[in-house]
Design a protein around this nucleic acid. Sequence first.
DNA 1: CCAGAATGGAATGCTATGTTCCGGTCGTTA
DNA 2: TAACGACCGGAACATAGCATTCCATTCTGG
Lengths: 205, 205
Amino acid sequence: MNGRRAQAARNDQVILEAARAVFVADPGAPISAVAERAGVGISALYRRYAGKEDLLRRLCSDGLDRYIAEAEAALTGEDDPWDAFAGFVRRVVETDNHSLVINLAGTFAPGEDLHRASAHANELTIRIFERARDAGVLRPGLAVADVAMVFEQIACLRLGDEARTAEIRDRYLTLVLDGLRLPSADPLPGPPPSVEEVNRRWRFE
Amino acid sequence: MNGRRAQAARNDQVILEAARAVFVADPGAPISAVAERAGVGISALYRRYAGKEDLLRRLCSDGLDRYIAEAEAALTGEDDPWDAFAGFVRRVVETDNHSLVINLAGTFAPGEDLHRASAHANELTIRIFERARDAGVLRPGLAVADVAMVFEQIACLRLGDEARTAEIRDRYLTLVLDGLRLPSADPLPGPPPSVEEVNRRWRFE
DNA sequence: CCAGAATGGAATGCTATGTTCCGGTCGTTA
DNA sequence: TAACGACCGGAACATAGCATTCCATTCTGG
């Protein structure tokens, strides 16, 4: 149970969590900040990842997995289409998932697996969105990609420490969700973002 | 009309505009990017500003002046409290003023004049806000500092080129403003940001 | 025609940061 | 129990990016 092997396994976790925390707070943070936060040396990082880009890819991949898990939960665990939609959005915001994925997009070359995961995430989001739309609880004229933009505009809010930031985000997310749940209101101005527009920020190479 | 003197005067403008454009797009941009965009050499910059920080201060100061001008226009030129409020917010977003001020905050030491201007801007914002609130057109529980957070969450939206970005921002600003104009709705959750919280991001030294 | 303002852009010095390397620690196993 | 090696901390190294300086050159106002 104890021993070098066990510490190494624990470090796997500790390092991932530290990396997540650090890069969510500052996407341009140096590798050394991750090591410091994890309470390990830099070697412990390079033993596990080929380089910074490799770590970033891994974080992003994990982030997508969480997103997918939330989306699946929303599709299977909730009956009311609006509650499923709003709950999903709220949970993604709470876990700060979008901060991570957005901030890191473009800083590394995504692999084939990331593409697939991304496509899957997209598809699930569409299902959640269309279920709500078909139920007639959404403001007219909304598109799936609007959801991504909502994530983005909420994720950029920061105020003081983590707890206060969560509070503030909840505040404005409520505001925005109220604005989305208006079947009788006028459509929003301008063409909605297209999925292609939203995806363009990734570095495809 | 022509000549070295005239070119220099023209360059004053060209450089300021280039700097504004460059730093709005990327707050961490190098000085050389400004020179390139302005089509001048680096010397032309250093002849006018003592250093990067000096230029940033100047940009920020100009930004505040524009903000103040918009605020005063809203207070004197418009009768309806809601129209004054919404129009003001819209114009500030359109000129991308907040992007600049927010992005640059904390990267330089503000001088006494900036403090004064900032206080003035704040005061005008309060007047616009309270006029709308007292007219009963605002959602209950809103605070002045909520306006700053709205600027922030809209300013972080980017999509493709400048024109498309403006469209998208207009789209979500409409969404948010709709959410603010709901006198009968429930108050938003959580304590609103305080002015002090919002100002904390400045580097006071 | 010339003193000097204005400029372009290369040269300089520095900082931040990714990556490598080495000496040390301590389970593990023969 | 003795040596082996996985694992680790962190200093050392190499480099890229950037603010700032410097100087040769251009052009003009008197």
